[in-house]
Design a protein around this nucleic acid. Structure first.
Lengths: 255, 255
DNA sequence: ACGAGTGTTGCAGAGAATGCAACGCGATCT
DNA sequence: AGATCGCGTTGCATTCTCTGCAACACTCGT
């Protein structure tokens, strides 16, 4: 809605791919060099882009600071974190917390596995929306029309043979997930990695976040991982209660 | 240099403090509501701002993604990371990597302590520039006029009784650090926390990053921490060599 | 049911951003 | 060395875009 700002902001993703000089920015924006220069200057003044010694531009420091402040201001995260840590201590696997925003699902917190295995996830990165267990939970809670509209717009990459193939299968899976109140991803993203996930609900019962435990086949089988489901669901419920203000924070409810 | 973009970007730090509605944004920007609305819409279209269910605005998801991509494109970080992990495994303490940018020093990587202690640092957050060991190293390498100019512009908060009190003391400290090639912070930021740091240099010998090991008094004394200095320096040097392309990546040089 | 407080839209004026052309500067090539 | 190319930078006139206003739509709370 604002051409100038629109152009300026288009520079950021452009620079995310790597540093670029003035000419490249101008070309890819389709504007004159002097225009690009002034936009870059403004971005620079706000610290969003940084000028390297070789005069090329790249994304700047303020961007990190902003992202950090943003993520810390999410109340779900603050409340959930100790629970994630506790869950990790009990089962040892990687624990993720994700939210849904603007047709993307992204991790906002992560506690790493105690086993020496690498997982390709990072806080802030959009997840594989068609296969991830947390994504299914978050999307399954959308009103039906939105769900259908979204499912139609998505791509369905075949990460593995067990990836969700198309919109119809995805909607069916969402219906199941919605029904049972939890979700799993058994090798749908990476062949050897399984996840189980449970929803975190706000005071109004709507799903505001989803939490998952992930582990590779080499550590535990899918069956063993599914055995953790009760624990995962209990943890998610505890977060939900605390989020709604109806629970004692920090302590388990008396048995 | 561009009023419209300038105003739009001013919204971001404003929103970093927490969600705000249209009226608040307009007021704090000093513009008409309709203007603020259009700016917010543009930011929204780029995913930098997100609209909550209650219609208030807060920072959006794309911001994380951008910050992530940006940090991953820093070659220092990618090269240094395995070294930081290795250092952490050897000594067990928290390891930081920081760079200097636009009169700020900020952490771009961190490996957490294996001891159960909290440290108030986060990737992307500007560090206490007048006291942190990594900051001293990075600033000590600046050309003398820049160093003096910067020292004059800084604030010198008295975090503790051992914080750097003023510009003169800071410049003196920088001179020492520059001379000896390493730096320490003994309780200058938080009374009970000490750090030792060493510089990472690029091919031209200039300091491009700084690495530190931090630990609280309750775990190791300042003397013991200083005993780790040779190890820290060796690690920093290894990163420097790899960064300059003059070393075997991943392996220690043969003895 | 009413009013206050929001967010939202069309419009005309004004101010700001744009592209052009020229300049300075450094690196490269002959 | 001299010349040339490439790049970033600046002043300026034109034009387009952004701005603020005022009126409208809408949701709450009373």
């Amino acid at each position: 809605m604002s051409q100038t700002v629109d152009r300026a902001l288009s520079i950021l993703p452009l620079l995310a791919g790597g540093p670029a000089d003035l000419g490249q920015v101008a070309d890819r924006l389709g504007v004159h060099k002097s225009t690009a220069l002034r936009l870059l200057r403004t971005l620079h003044a706000h610290g969003l882009v940084h000028r390297q010694p070789d005069q090329r531009y790249r994304l700047g420091a303020r961007l990190f600071a902003l992202a950090q402040e943003a993520v810390e201001n999410l109340d779900v995260r603050g409340i959930a974190h100790p629970h994630l840590v506790e869950l990790n201590e009990r089962c040892g696997h990687t624990v993720h917390l994700a939210v849904h925003e603007e047709n993307e699902v992204l991790y906002i917190d992560k506690v790493d596995s105690r086993y020496p295995v690498r997982m390709y996830s990072r806080i802030g990165k959009p997840v594989a929306i068609t296969v991830a267990a947390v994504a299914k939970l978050l999307l399954a809670d959308l009103p039906e029309p939105e769900r259908r509209a979204l499912a139609g717009k998505l791509d369905y990459p075949r990460y593995t043979s067990r990836s969700t193939p198309d919109a119809a299968a995805f909607l069916a899976e969402l219906a199941t997930v919605r029904e049972q109140g939890w979700a799993a991803d058994l090798g749908g993203h990476e062949e050897s990695i399984n996840c189980v996930a449970a929803p975190v609900r706000g005071a109004d019962g709507r799903v505001v976040a989803a939490m998952s435990v992930s582990a590779p086949n080499v550590v535990v089988t899918a069956e063993e991982l599914l055995g953790l489901l009760p624990l995962v669901r209990r943890t998610a419920d505890a977060i939900s209660r605390e989020l709604s203000g109806t629970a004692s924070p920090g302590h388990e409810p008396a048995p």
